[in-house]
């Protein structure tokens, strides 16, 4: 496979994953704004930070309010992480690697782009927002479905999956990092309505409300939420799940190519550090530091994969 093709697949699926994650973030913010208008501005601010576009946002807007934030995150092409920008980029990458994709995957990606371009051509009215967000998530899911259903499990598939999980791990870690303070035992007043709303937001932004209800049996605790999103390998957006998938797909590549590379050691290290941890030890060593370190190592892994598999040269 061409190094360029590996790069195209990696980024195509990173971008698709990002479109879905951004839609979830906006959904979570919108929910808070509806239910607790007093906290809305703070909430939009933290969502912009989580999306990693705070600086770019402040260059254009001075206040954090629903309309400008939603527009910036969904439609603004000057924001390279807006849903429209990343769907553009995903499709451009898909075109570049068209020969590596099945017709189904290409057509799902192309339809995703056609649909969203149309849907996001104008400012999204608040009444339409839930529908629009649902369509964004669904379009991304359709591409993923086509990928699972039609693609050969070879290196092409591995690079697509690796892109997905590098992005997803980063996203979940950022959500936790921006909100880590509401999970700390010291400031939480269990059962207070503020915390309940904040916890709910965290769960909602990774579509884990239902999963958490099943697991916790109805009692919400910050440590329980953190454990679900960091260490629970059954939860498809948890850090443990993502790193296990990364390790596995990288191992397939090493098998396929008959060569273990530095990125394999890195992935193994990240995986080991998570898998043997208890949630208590993570809280003891300061949640914020732990998450910062995780984000750094996950980025390093992405860069290492680019290098080891000759994405650029």
């Amino acid at each position: 496979m061409l190094g360029k093709t590996a790069r195209g697949l990696f980024w195509m699926f990173r971008y698709l994953e990002r479109s879905e994650n951004t839609a979830r973030l906006v959904d979570a913010g919108f929910r808070i704004a509806l239910t607790r208008s007093a906290a809305a501005s703070d909430e939009w601010s933290s969502i912009v930070t989580t999306a990693g576009v705070r600086e770019a946002y402040l260059e254009k807007h001075s206040q954090f309010a629903a309309a400008p934030v939603i527009d910036f995150l969904l439609r603004d092409r000057s924001n390279s992480s807006s849903v429209m920008s990343v769907v553009d980029a995903a499709r451009a990458n898909a075109r570049m690697v068209r020969t590596a994709l099945t017709r189904e995957v290409w057509e799902a990606t192309n339809e995703c782009w056609i649909t969203l371009k149309d849907l996001l051509a104008r400012q999204v009215a608040e009444t339409d927002l839930p529908d629009v967000l649902a369509v964004i998530r669904r379009q991304s899911a359709l591409v993923r479905g086509a990928l699972h259903g039609t693609m050969l499990r070879n290196d092409i598939y591995d690079f697509a999956r690796i892109g997905t999980f590098v992005e997803r791990a980063d996203n979940t870690a950022r959500i936790l990092d921006v909100k880590y303070y509401v999970l700390l035992p010291s400031v939480s007043h269990v059962g207070s309505s503020l915390d309940n709303v904040q916890w709910e937001t965290i769960l909602r932004s990774v579509s884990a409300q239902r999963a958490y209800r099943w697991i916790s049996g109805g009692t919400a605790s910050p440590m329980g939420i953190a454990e679900l999103l960091i260490l629970d390998r059954r939860m498809p957006r948890s850090l443990a799940f993502c790193t296990a998938q990364l390790r596995e797909n990288l191992a397939f590549l090493a098998d396929d190519y008959g060569a273990a590379l530095p990125c394999h050691d890195l992935a193994e290290g990240i995986y080991r550090d998570l898998i043997d941890r208890s949630i208590e030890s993570i809280f003891d060593s300061r949640l914020h530091d732990f998450l910062g370190e995780f984000i750094r190592r996950n980025n390093e892994l992405g860069a290492r994969i680019e290098h080891d598999y000759r994405f650029y040269g």
Binding site: M1, L2, G3, K4, A6, D155, Y257, Y309, R310, G313
Partner: peptide, 14 residues
């Protein structure tokens, strides 16, 4: 994607 390698045109693969 292409370079000259030992006098031949070669493509950069993974």
């Amino acid at each position: 994607d292409l370079s000259v390698v030992e006098g031949r045109i070669a493509m950069r693969t993974t």
